[in-house]
Amino acid sequence: MLSDEDFKAVFGMTRSAFANLPLWKQQNLKKEKGLF
């Protein structure tokens, strides 16, 4: 599990902003970052 700081560094957004994205968009971002 990423820390909040690492999460923001990897995804360029906060966890709450990420959580507001549609599920497909979350999955695409995870795949792009190799976290899926």
Rank of each mutant, 00 (worst) to 15 (best):
M1F: 14
M1G: 12
M1R: 10
M1K: 11
M1N: 12
M1W: 15
L2D: 07
L2C: 10
L2Y: 08
L2F: 10
L2W: 11
L2K: 04
L2M: 12
L2I: 10
L2R: 05
S3Y: 04
S3K: 06
S3F: 04
S3E: 06
S3V: 04
S3H: 04
S3M: 05
S3L: 05
D4Q: 04
D4L: 03
D4H: 04
D4R: 03
D4K: 02
D4F: 04
D4E: 11
D4Y: 03
D4G: 04
E5V: 08
E5L: 10
E5Q: 08
E5H: 08
E5Y: 08
E5G: 06
E5P: 05
E5I: 09
E5W: 07
E5D: 11
D6P: 02
D6A: 13
D6S: 08
D6I: 09
D6Y: 09
D6E: 14
D6V: 08
F7T: 01
F7S: 00
F7P: 00
F7G: 00
F7M: 02
F7I: 03
F7Y: 06
F7E: 00
F7Q: 00
F7K: 00
K8G: 04
K8Q: 13
K8D: 07
K8L: 15
K8R: 10
K8A: 12
K8N: 10
K8W: 14
K8V: 14
A9S: 11
A9P: 01
A9G: 07
A9L: 12
A9Q: 10
A9M: 12
A9T: 13
V10Q: 07
V10H: 10
V10F: 12
V10A: 07
V10K: 09
V10C: 09
V10W: 11
V10T: 09
V10R: 08
V10G: 01
F11S: 01
F11K: 00
F11L: 04
F11V: 03
F11G: 00
F11R: 00
F11H: 02
F11N: 01
F11D: 00
F11W: 06
G12V: 00
G12F: 02
G12Y: 03
G12D: 04
G12A: 03
G12Q: 05
G12M: 03
G12W: 02
G12I: 01
G12P: 00
G12N: 06
M13Y: 08
M13D: 01
M13I: 07
M13L: 06
M13E: 01
M13R: 01
M13A: 01
M13C: 05
M13G: 00
M13S: 01
M13W: 04
M13T: 02
M13P: 00
T14Q: 03
T14R: 02
T14W: 03
T14M: 03
T14E: 07
T14K: 02
T14I: 04
T14N: 06
R15M: 07
R15H: 04
R15T: 03
R15N: 02
R15E: 03
R15C: 07
R15G: 02
R15V: 06
R15D: 01
R15P: 07
R15K: 13
R15F: 05
R15Y: 07
S16R: 12
S16I: 12
S16P: 05
S16F: 12
S16A: 14
S16Y: 11
S16C: 02
S16V: 12
S16G: 09
A17W: 04
A17L: 05
A17D: 13
A17N: 05
A17P: 00
A17T: 08
A17C: 13
A17R: 06
A17S: 07
A17M: 10
F18E: 00
F18M: 03
F18D: 01
F18T: 15
F18K: 00
F18S: 00
A19E: 14
A19H: 12
A19W: 08
A19N: 13
A19M: 14
A19D: 12
A19R: 12
A19Q: 12
A19I: 09
A19V: 07
A19F: 14
N20K: 15
N20V: 09
N20M: 14
N20W: 05
N20P: 00
N20F: 06
N20G: 09
N20R: 13
N20L: 14
N20Q: 15
L21P: 01
L21N: 01
L21H: 00
L21F: 03
L21I: 03
L21A: 02
L21V: 01
L21Q: 02
L21Y: 03
L21E: 03
L21G: 00
L21T: 02
P22D: 04
P22N: 02
P22E: 05
P22I: 02
P22T: 03
P22Y: 03
P22C: 02
P22H: 02
P22V: 02
P22K: 02
P22Q: 03
L23S: 07
L23R: 11
L23M: 11
L23E: 10
L23V: 11
L23W: 13
L23N: 06
L23I: 11
L23A: 09
L23T: 08
L23K: 10
W24Y: 07
W24P: 04
W24H: 06
W24A: 06
W24K: 05
W24L: 06
W24V: 06
W24T: 05
W24C: 10
W24G: 04
W24M: 05
W24E: 09
K25H: 11
K25D: 09
K25E: 15
K25M: 14
K25F: 10
K25W: 08
K25P: 01
K25V: 13
K25T: 10
K25S: 06
Q26T: 01
Q26V: 02
Q26I: 02
Q26R: 06
Q26M: 02
Q26Y: 01
Q26W: 01
Q27G: 05
Q27P: 01
Q27L: 14
Q27K: 10
Q27S: 10
Q27Y: 14
Q27V: 14
Q27E: 14
Q27F: 12
N28E: 15
N28Y: 14
N28M: 15
N28D: 13
N28K: 15
N28F: 14
N28I: 14
N28G: 08
N28T: 13
L29N: 01
L29Q: 02
L29S: 01
L29P: 01
L29E: 03
L29I: 09
K30E: 12
K30I: 15
K30S: 10
K30R: 13
K30L: 15
K30C: 15
K30V: 15
K31S: 09
K31R: 13
K31M: 11
K31P: 03
K31I: 13
K31H: 11
K31Q: 10
K31D: 08
K31Y: 12
K31T: 10
E32N: 08
E32F: 07
E32H: 07
E32Q: 12
E32T: 08
E32I: 11
E32W: 08
E32D: 09
E32P: 03
E32A: 11
K33M: 11
K33D: 03
K33P: 04
K33S: 11
K33R: 09
K33A: 13
K33H: 12
K33V: 12
G34I: 08
G34V: 07
G34N: 09
G34S: 08
G34W: 08
G34P: 05
G34A: 07
G34Q: 08
G34H: 09
L35Y: 15
L35F: 15
L35M: 13
L35D: 10
L35Q: 11
L35A: 08
L35C: 15
L35H: 10
L35I: 13
L35T: 08
F36H: 11
F36P: 09
F36W: 14
F36Y: 11
F36N: 11
F36Q: 10
